[in-house]
Each structure stands twice: as structure tokens, then as C-alpha cells.
Computed example of a mutant assay.
Amino acid sequence: MARSRSHEMNAELETQGITLSHQVINGKRVIFRVATCTQCQSTEENRFGADFPPDAVIKRFKNSGWTFGKRTLCRSCSTPAAKPRPTVPTHQKDETMTTPHAAKPAPAAKAPPPPAQPLAASPVRTPTIAEVVRIVEKLDMVFSDGRYRNGHSDDTIARELNIPRAVVAKVREESPHHGPIQLDPEVVKLREDVDAFQAMHIEAGKMLDELRGRLVKLEGQR
């Protein structure tokens, strides 16, 4: 029953672009959840307990700036780019200065382009036999004792072989000769501290925006 519930939780999170990853730390198997951005393919992982509910997992990533829905977007892709301010041609400025009382017709507004259709997040696909062979051959060269060597990672293999990073991680996790990444406990602790500080920074930003709004409102009443 518990195993069935675990499969249901994993399937629910995979529809949001969040996959399961196991890593060995101090001889113990630790569960991580990895979110993959559907737009830029960047990833972020967080450590969770075995019975952590999907809603709480998604909330943790949202606190780091991720958005979920029809697309899974990282902090960078979730923040809209600033639009440039329109510039007034020089000849229009001169005409406005020399004939201040002449009313000019407003330019016709252009119809906005239709919005792009969002891509739905999909679970990690099953790799082909050829892809498994290529990934395992590469892992044999750069992965041993639960760690990558010489700066290699799932991301570097994914780029080199032109295979999605999530598929590379899936093959490595399920490989009997490779398996989960064994992280240094100090690295894990530092990553947890960074995540905590990041969450505090986001919360402090919200509080600062609220205080600024109150200040503007009070100054406007005087």
C-alpha cells in the first residue's frame, strides 16, 4: 500500500516536471526532488523526506521562485523581461514645441500578437536502448565511487550526447554499476544553508515591498 502511494506521489510530481533522485550520504540513501525548467532546461534539487506530500514539495520550489502550471519555469524564466520605453522621434518633438496648440491624431494602436501556446510539463521519458548504451559508456569514463570526476556531471553528459538531463540522471540512477551520487556531507549542509538563506531573502523582499507601499501611501496623505 505504501509503495503504491509512493508511485502515485512520484507520478503526480512528474506531471509538474519534478523527478525523484536518490543519493547516498554517510552510507544512507537520501531522497532529493529535481525540478526541470521546460523553457531553458535548467534544474534545481531539494532534499525531502520519504513521505513529503507533493503539495509541500511544490511549495518549497515556489518559495525559491519557481512557477508551476501548464509549464514548469525556473526563477529566471518566471521573471518577465523589462519592456523598453518607447522613444519619440526628433521631428515629432520639434513639431510639438513649435505648434503647442495643434492637436495631432493619436497613432492607431497595433493589435497585439496572439499569445504563444504554453508547453505542458511531461514526465521523464523512457530512454532508447541506443541512448542507454551511450550514457553508460560515458559514465564508465567519468563516474566512479558514487561521484563524477574532472568536472563532469549529468548536465555535461546531457549536452555532449544531446540527450535530456533528466534521462541521463534516470539511466545513472538505475544503473547497477553507477547509481545515486554520493555527496559530501559538508556540501549537503552548505546547500541546505543556501536554500534557507534564499527563502529568507525572498521573504525579506516581500516585506520590503510591503513597507515601501505603506510609506508611499502615508506620504501621499500628507
Rank of each mutant, 00 (worst) to 15 (best):
V194M: 06
D140N: 12
H101R: 15
P53S: 03
T36C: 04
V132F: 07
P118E: 02
K217Q: 14
A2G: 11
L119H: 11
E137R: 13
D209I: 05
N63C: 08
K138A: 09
D193M: 07
F143R: 00
G17V: 03
V216A: 09
I25C: 11
V30Y: 01
R60Q: 10
A106V: 11
L183V: 05
N10S: 05
N162H: 15
P185D: 02
H7V: 14
P118V: 00
R222E: 09
I135V: 10
S175H: 03
E95L: 13
V132S: 12
A81M: 10
I157C: 03
A35C: 05
S153H: 01
E173T: 06
E131T: 10
I31M: 13
H91L: 11
V30F: 01
R165I: 14
R159A: 13
A120S: 10
A11P: 01
V34F: 09
P185V: 02
R33S: 00
R172T: 01
R134H: 14
P164W: 00
A103F: 13
G27T: 04
P114E: 08
G179R: 03
H152T: 02
G69T: 02
Q182K: 09
R165P: 03
N150I: 05
A130S: 13
P86D: 04
F143I: 00
N46I: 11
R149E: 12
K170N: 08
M207N: 10
R125K: 15
H201L: 15
Q221I: 05
V24G: 11
P80E: 00
D155R: 10
A111C: 08
K93P: 10
K28C: 13
R5D: 15
R85P: 12
E12T: 04
V34L: 11
N26D: 09
A109D: 10
R125E: 07
S144E: 07
P123E: 03
V216F: 06
V124C: 06
C77I: 01
G27P: 01
M97R: 13
L119K: 12
E14Q: 05
N26A: 12
Q39W: 09
G205D: 08
S76I: 07
V136R: 07
E160N: 14
I58W: 04
M141N: 12
D154Q: 04
R60H: 12
K104W: 11
A56I: 09
E160M: 13
V188T: 03
M200I: 15
R125W: 06
S42P: 02
F48P: 01
R85V: 11
P176A: 03
S21F: 14
E192S: 05
E8F: 03
S6M: 05
H152P: 03
I135N: 03
A56V: 11
G205K: 04
R125Q: 14
T99E: 15
I25H: 12
P86T: 03
V133M: 06
P107N: 03
F48H: 07
A82Q: 11
N10K: 02
F197I: 12
